[in-house]
Design a binder for these strands. Structure first.
Lengths: 122, 122
DNA sequence: ATAACATATCATTACTTGATGATATGTTAT
DNA sequence: ATAACATATCATCAAGTAATGATATGTTAT
């Protein structure tokens, strides 16, 4: 018997469940947008920036000062945060002030906190 | 004048805001755990797996069938999902059935959907 | 005990992405 | 107009990671 041929791929254990699961899938477009959106929260640097902004709006300069980060690092990440509409900004003279864009962000952050605090971890 | 020397790093525009923002930061440990947790949702493959599981528990075999993915791909990603307690599993004979671990996951997914549906995008 | 099967793990490769220094853009003050 | 400044963008490099084929582990049936 050929050991390399996998049967399991062709077989379906529970046809009904699989059918339902298939219907519940989002389109590639939506899935991909979702991934891009969530990816934003998957980086410590960006999370820190979001945390600073969750108190009050700040100019780039003050974000750098708060987190002790390089200017280009902060600007790069702010760009990504802007692209997925997680932060908004307003310009005032030479300075640009950033703030969280909507309430989803607070919600997502707090759900994340809840999850990791349920000390299933370790 | 030396153009490479950046003044802005040393300056703080709004000392009070910066102070408050600093107090609001989480520890490195918490931030890093949060990032690891959120990173999970930042990949299309994993999102698809989570979507299939949001209907009902499924064995690995049926996840593969639903999504038309390779066995090693699914298993690899399930491993990551397990590690951050996003899915749980139970073994039944040769099969292993996976399901979403808690309600946070549903919440996070639906907040994500809401966010990208607010057609700020494009 | 052995074959068939379901899942997990490993190693490799290709791709993605974050940090950074350098440079560009745009604003204010002189 | 020009200098000083705040922020944005670019290019490069290093580190992380997803997909995949191959292999290992563990379970059931014979």
């Amino acid at each position: 018997m050929d050991k390399t041929e996998l049967v399991c791929c062709e077989k379906i254990v529970d046809k009904e469940k699989v059918e339902k699961a298939r219907q519940n899938l989002f389109s590639e477009t939506v899935t991909s947008r979702l991934a891009i959106f969530f990816k934003i929260f998957g980086d410590s640097t960006r999370l820190k920036i979001l945390m600073t902004l969750s108190v009050s709006e700040l100019c780039v300069c003050d974000i750098m000062a708060t987190l002790n980060m390089k200017q280009s690092t902060v600007s790069q990440q702010l760009k990504l945060l802007r692209e997925v509409k997680v932060v908004k900004y307003r310009q005032e003279g030479k300075q640009v002030f950033y703030s969280l864009d909507d309430d989803h962000i607070h919600k997502i952050l707090s759900i994340g906190i809840e999850h990791i605090k349920e000390d299933k971890y370790e």
